[in-house]
Design a protein around this nucleic acid. Sequence first.
DNA 1: CCAGCCCGTGAGCATATGTTCAAAAGACAC
DNA 2: GTGTCTTTTGAACATATGCTCACGGGCTGG
Lengths: 315, 315
Amino acid sequence: MAGDNEKSRLDDAARAGWLYFIAGHTQDEIARMLQVSRASAQRLVSLCLAERLITFRLEHPIASCMALAAQLKERFALVHCEVVPTDPAAPTGSAGIAERCANLLETTLRAETPVIIALGTGRAVRAAVERVSPVDRPEHQIVSLVGNILADGSASFFDTVGRLADRTGARHYPMPLPFLMGTEDERDRMVRLDAIAKVKAVADKADLKLVGIGQMDQKAQMHVDGFVTRDELTEMMRLGAIGEITGWAYDAKGIVIDGGTNRRLTSIPPEVPARAMTIAAAVGPAKIPAIRAALTGRLINGLITDEATARAILA
Amino acid sequence: MAGDNEKSRLDDAARAGWLYFIAGHTQDEIARMLQVSRASAQRLVSLCLAERLITFRLEHPIASCMALAAQLKERFALVHCEVVPTDPAAPTGSAGIAERCANLLETTLRAETPVIIALGTGRAVRAAVERVSPVDRPEHQIVSLVGNILADGSASFFDTVGRLADRTGARHYPMPLPFLMGTEDERDRMVRLDAIAKVKAVADKADLKLVGIGQMDQKAQMHVDGFVTRDELTEMMRLGAIGEITGWAYDAKGIVIDGGTNRRLTSIPPEVPARAMTIAAAVGPAKIPAIRAALTGRLINGLITDEATARAILA
DNA sequence: CCAGCCCGTGAGCATATGTTCAAAAGACAC
DNA sequence: GTGTCTTTTGAACATATGCTCACGGGCTGG
C-alpha cells in the first residue's frame, strides 16, 4: 500500500497548501486541523510547493517582464537584467528604460565607497543621465568610453559624462578626441598620449559601464549622427557588422570585427568577455540582432530593455 | 500624476509579488532589489495579495473539495465540514467518508478531559466506528441516540455504540428498546422509564453527535433495514418527509414532522437548532434533498460528505 | 508662503516560518 | 522474533515575516 501512503501524503500536502495559500491560515492552525505537528504542517506546505501542486499566477503586465528578465539572465548568464513593459503609446519610447537606467546609476552612486562609472553615448544613455536626480557625490568618478569630437571637428551633443558629473559633483574624464582618426597609425599614436592613456586607465577600473547598442544598417545612429560616413558604414556592413557598442562594430556572433573603422576608432575597447558590470540599454525591433549578438559574444553582461524587445531576443 | 504613482506602486507590488512567490526570494532580498526598506517590501507583497494581482491555483482533486467544504461551512454556518474526493471506482463508496469520520472520532477520543460521544445508526456511522483504531480511554462515554430493537424483536446489527465501546473501553449506553413503539402513549411511557431517561440525560450532554442521514423514498434505508413498514414509510412521505436523522423524519425545510412514526419513535429527539457538535455523514445522489433539508433546518451543524454530493447540495 | 493633514517610511518587536538534529517508528532481511 | 537500516517525527533554534508606532516629507487649502 505504498502508493496509498504516497497518495494520502500528497492529499494532505494539497490540503495544507490550500489552507495555507488559499484560505490564508497559519501553519500552526493547519497543524491543528490536520492533527500533525507544526513542523509537519510546514513540511506538507513545502511538499505542496515542491510537487508543484500549487501554482502562482500573476495577473499583471509586469509578470511577463519579470519572467523575460529571468530568462534572459539565465540564457546569457547576465549579472543584471531588467525588462520594462512596452509602452503602447510610444513603441520606441525608452522612457521606462531611461527610468531604470537612471535608477541603476543612482543606486551605484549611492554606494559608500568611491565608484567609477563609465558611460557610452547614444540616446538611451543620454536619457538615463538626464533622469538622474542631483546628489553631491564628489568622491566618485565618471569616465567616458567614447571620443566625442565628430569628423567635422564639432563636439557631439551626447556629453553624457559632463551631464552626469554636473549632477553629482564627481570628478569626470571626458574623451576630448575625435571618434574616428584618419588612419590606424594616427589612432595608435593618439591613444598613447598620456592624457588619453590616463582616461583609459580609469575606464579599465570602472565598476559600472553603461552603454547603448547601435544597429549597423542603413539607419545606423552612428551614421545618422555623423560619426561615420555612408561609405564607412557600408564597408563595415560588408565586413559583417551587425551592431556596435561605443563604436566598436561586431558581427552576428558578437565578435569585434578586425578591420574597417574599428582600426581607426579611439573608443576604449570592450573587454571580452565583459568582467566589470557592463550594461547595455537598448530597445526596438531594429536593434534586436545587434543586441542578441552582443549578448552572445559576451560584450555585455547586463541588459535593460523592454518587453517586446526581450521577447524578440529570446525568440 | 496621482494615477502614475498609483500605477507604479502597483507595478512594484506586482514585481515584489513575482519575486516573492514565483522567484522565491525573501522579502529582504526583494527590498534590496527594489531599493526600498524591508518593511516596504513586505507592504508591496501584501498589496499584491490585497489587490489580487496574484492568484493561487491548486492542481489537485483536493482543491475543489476544500473549496466546497468552505462554501458549505459558510452557507450553512457549520462548525465542521469535510468534503472528500468522490471515488470514481465506487460512486457510493463511503470509504473516504468513513475514514474522515473515524478520524473525527479518534480526535475527539484523544481529548484530555472525559467526553461523551453520541452515535446514530446507519452504514456511514457503522463504517466510521469500524475504522477507529483501539485506544484505551475508559473515562469517556459512548451513548446511543437510537433504539436498536427492530419491529420483529431482533436486534439491529448496527450496534455502533457497542463497537466503539469495545475499541475504547469507554462506558457505553445502548438503547435496548424498540425503535418504534406501537402507539404514542406506549412511547411516552417507555421513554419515561428510569433507565431510558438516564440514557437521554447522557445523550443530552454529548460533546459530539455523529449521525447518518436517510432519504425518505421508496428505497429508504429505514424501510429496507426493517425499521419501518412500507405503509409507515408511505404515510411519512405523504406528510412531507424527505429525510430522517436517527429516525426523526423531517420535511424539505428541515422541520421535524409532527405525526406518523415520529409520534411512536423512541430515539433521542434532535435539538433544533443543533447546539452540541452534531455531524452528519452522508453521501449519494439519493440523499441530496435530505441533506440539504437537514442543513437548512439546522438539525445538524456539521457535515462529512463527498465532492459530488457537496456540489449537488450547493447547486 | 505657511499651517495642517495625510500618506508613506523605517525602527523595533511579536509572531510565524524554515531548518537542524537526535530520537522514535517502521520496513526489511534473517 | 530480532537486529539493522531507512524514514519520519517533534523540539529547539535561526530566520523571515507581519505589525505598531512615531516620524518626516509632500500636498492642500487657506
